[in-house]
Design a protein around this nucleic acid. Structure first.
Lengths: 211, 211, 211, 211
DNA sequence: TATGAATGAGCCTTCATTCAT
DNA sequence: CATGAATGAAGGCTCATTCAT
């Protein structure tokens, strides 16, 4: 009995977040109304407020999961590099791309929200604490990435390159491509995300891996 | 207390746009109020409406200039490639990066707004016509880019590669890096935009240029 | 300080309409503010919008009831004529006057609004659909009137006269007198509506009934 | 020179009033903007304000001419009755209808505005003084009408009837028919104003004139 | 827990009016 | 005389949030 209650609670929360995710991404924070979220989740506004104390609270709650999943994948990636699961430089780069992609597939809208948030769109609308919570989690992830590249260099898999810039460039490329391809998808209906990602990361690996 | 009536029309328009630019970028379309724009421009709301027929109209007016400047720079870039002003493949890639950068410097906030717009946030908030106007201009620019790469391949400066994916990747990388570095700049105060851009495009050119 | 939430929905609606009725009539559609309606109904603006989706929606909602009541009375009038409840031509004319009067008493302000609406003032301010809704209902009522007069002629109660013009004239007379007498009432405080109506319809019946 | 100036001034005023007339009638007082009036008159807003000190002032200025014309026609009508220009009771009633009609033709929109004004639509929007000015002029006209009917009774042309109610009824009928027929004209495009007026006044005269 | 009526601050936009040129 | 830029007070409407039931 008790357990099913708890479970139900989680289900409710998930339903609300699922509804919110889609709306927040397509219409933005300001453009999404609590009413529309409630309606999409087939609940009343009051119930949404029972589970989330404010719109911002709900908004924030959608970013952490994907950042955490990305964190988990990055740690696994680091472990794999340490354990020499990747044989070539190229494989490492492609491996990272796949890590990014897994996070994207884990929670597409969540990642989009993170992006629009990081882009500064809503910077001044959320509390400092909230903003910091997100930023901190992102920073942690970046550190894992850098650490992993440093390790890969130590292992002789890479040229000696700037791990900070490399990490930045790869993430930026990933995010940039997602945005561009999604934008194109919206207007043309054609989805070239995976191919373009593969192509781009391939160019990078061609550039940085010892020949 | 009325404003001096002599101020030239375009000066007023510039003042309003200057005020709007910053606000639209930091708070988005929905998050920015006409009141705040007017206040920042030290005008009354009515005056803003005298020059721009709606908030959306003002918003749009901030995107076209940078897209047009980018268009001009791309045409010049195409001309330079045709006239063999670039000697090596690397130079072409770096040249394109500089074209992007010139547009960015020409109107930083404008480009930011274009990005946030293309990211989808506001697609549903503006009229079809407006959306199309922007998208069309962007498409034109992409076409110039692709045409130029095709030409460079014909000229034997590049390997035979996919000009569509290459164009996409380069623009995505540029946009992604701008977003990431600006986000970092906001939280750390340190600006590595130029170096990171240079580094990233260098990696790409290393990857695609014949050795 | 919230309102008691138990009040039945239709009671609230009635309160709002009651407040709106008076204001719409005395100040017109444009001249009446939602704020003033809310204030008069001792509610917040938001609540008014909770029950009526727009000012126009509320405005329209005030016209239909009286037009429908008039419709019902006219059908009853038709039935009475068919069932020979009226013995003389004069009685029929007076009967119609009383039908008009019943509608007027059923919803005085509503009828005033219908009149000011039909007068053209607001034709261009409301949506096509809305305008058509009202006009259609009015047309239906006119048809009943004409049909009834045709029947009365068949029954030999009237001379053979133009039922369209007669219907128009009687309604026009009724509306004209209401407007004139109310206007006078506003400036003199004296109400001669009923007497003047009686007198006027008497003149008409004197004119058209066989001697 | 001087004279042409004066004349020009009158022309300007007429142009403004002509523009305003149409707009005030079709869109009402609130629905008409000074901007739209100025535009229609091919002038700037400032110029309109040069000739009329406010929107209300302009609005009011449109009512007096038709009321004055009606006054002149009524005086002529009185004179004609006194001078026995009308031979029968019927002719007098028809004569009055024609007086009304002349005023209507003299300034159709002006009369419409008077009607919507008298209907109370804008009562609370104009100053007391203004309102009184109009009402006074209307009262004077009514008095002439009544005096004329009293005279006609003295002359033995009419039965001894209530001149106040008769005057009211005839004016009400006239106004009611104008409104109804114009309303129908707007939706059907067919204009039966003159016939319906003729028919209606004929019924009245049939009713009140000694057989 | 769940609901949805109620609130009220806030936003976009309009427009009568003023006044420097 | 004429112009039109500038103002600011409203007004229609939205929506996050609260809370009695």
């Amino acid at each position: 009995m008790k357990k099913s209650r708890v479970k139900e609670k989680h289900i409710r929360i998930n339903e609300i977040q699922a509804a919110a995710r889609e709306l927040f991404f397509s219409k933005g924070l300001k453009g999404t109304t609590m009413e529309s979220i409630a309606k999409k989740a087939r609940l009343s506004k009051g119930t949404v407020y029972f589970y989330f104390k404010s719109k911002e609270d709900l908004y924030i709650s959608m970013m952490m999961p994907v950042l955490e999943e990305l964190g988990r994948q990055l740690l696994k990636f680091e472990k794999d590099v340490n354990e020499l699961k990747y044989e070539t430089c190229q494989e490492v780069i492609i491996g990272l791309k796949d890590v990014f992609l897994l996070a994207y597939q884990y929670d597409t809208d969540g990642l989009r929200i993170v992006n629009s948030f990081q882009q500064g769109e809503h910077f001044l609308e959320v509390s400092e604490a909230t903003s910091e919570k997100i930023s901190h989690r992102a920073r942690v992830n970046f550190n894992v990435m850098r650490r992993t590249f440093s390790r890969a260099i130590e292992l002789g898999m890479f040229k000696d390159l700037n791990v900070i810039k490399l990490s930045d460039a790869l993430w930026a490329l990933f995010v940039g491509i997602i945005q561009l391809e999604e934008s194109k998808f919206r207007s043309t209906g054609k989805n070239h995300l995976y191919e373009t990602l593969k192509y781009s990361f391939r160019m990078i690996s061609d550039g940085i891996c010892k020949s």
